[in-house]
């Protein structure tokens, strides 16, 4: 690993990226990757869960197949489309929402923005291109994936147990809460982590939306962030040999992280009761 020899262990903590000064590190992009993925999961997880529950338990049987193929269609939409959608359509609204969050919840450290919230004309440029905006687009991409996993596990719930709950006088929600969700817990966790693995590696939607910045920044609403994959996509072209090696190392680190997340997800899905028949 020539990268580590050249830049030392501070490669993982150094946030600045000054090729002229030969200072290089992935601290900032690691934080950025995690914060974008975290925003994406906060948005995608409840929506995926609700959609999966709706499709498997609440939707009329006639339109269920249509809904399933619609979710598949969502998964097939190219990420660049979600990037454009996020950039042109969602970002203005997201910026307005960010302003509202700052005015009302600005005391939370990760909602803080270095701009005056009560300015007569608010400074839009401080609110766009943030990890929050990128997270919305990434959420759209991971949502169908985790939704598909969850729905598949929910649909394997033994009908006998569901009918037993209903026969005992349970309401539909009572049945879902006591039978479907406990049965599908492994699928819920596994699907979420699979989505997380994809969110970490997402490139082009993030690259379109963010304004690149190389500061360790936990304030997700403020302009400027970067992720490992966006860094690679944006910088590989003009990289010198040492920088290319550094980018490869960054990519390898990303690979290891997603590998761990996906392996954990696979283990959880396999170990849970989900999918196994119940003869009790």
């Amino acid at each position: 690993m020539p990268t580590l020899e050249r830049y030392g262990w501070s490669f993982f903590t150094e946030s600045a990226r000054q090729p002229e000064a030969d200072v290089l590190g992935i601290g900032a992009v690691l934080v950025g990757t995690v914060s974008v993925a975290a925003v994406a999961m906060v948005i995608a997880f409840p929506l995926a869960l609700l959609t999966a529950l709706f499709i498997s338990e609440y939707a009329p049987a006639g339109i269920r197949a249509t809904l399933i193929s619609l979710v598949d269609l969502m998964a097939a939409v190219p990420s660049i489309i979600y990037g454009m959608w996020g950039y042109f359509l969602v970002m203005p609204h997201a910026a307005a929402f960010a302003l509202w969050l700052q005015q009302n919840f600005g005391w939370l450290p990760f909602f803080r923005i270095d701009a005056d919230p009560d300015a007569a004309v608010w400074d839009v440029s401080r609110y766009v291109g943030s990890a929050f905006c990128a997270g919305i687009a990434v959420a759209m991409m991971v949502l169908p994936m985790s939704c598909a996993v969850m729905r598949q596990v929910f649909s394997q719930t033994p009908p006998g147990e569901k009918e037993a709950a209903l026969a005992l006088g349970s309401t539909r929600w009572g049945m879902v809460r006591t039978v479907v969700i406990p049965f599908g817990r492994g699928g819920i966790i596994g699907g979420t982590m699979l989505g997380l693995g994809r969110a970490l590696g997402e490139t082009i939607a993030v690259l379109l939306i963010i304004s690149p910045d190389f500061v360790i920044k936990p304030r997700i609403l403020e302009v400027g962030t970067n992720t490992v994959s966006a860094l690679i996509a944006g910088r590989f072209g003009d990289a010198s040999a040492a920088q290319l090696s550094a980018l490869l190392t960054a990519g390898f680190v990303l690979f290891v992280i997603t590998l761990i997340v996906n392996t954990l997800a696979a283990v959880i899905v396999n170990r849970s009761r989900s999918g196994a028949g119940t003869d009790a």
Binding site: G201, S229, I232, G251, N262, T263
Partner: peptide, 10 residues
């Protein structure tokens, strides 16, 4: 299984 986790950018 591990390779399916490979981010496409990598």
């Amino acid at each position: 299984e591990a390779m399916t986790a490979l981010p496409s950018i990598v």
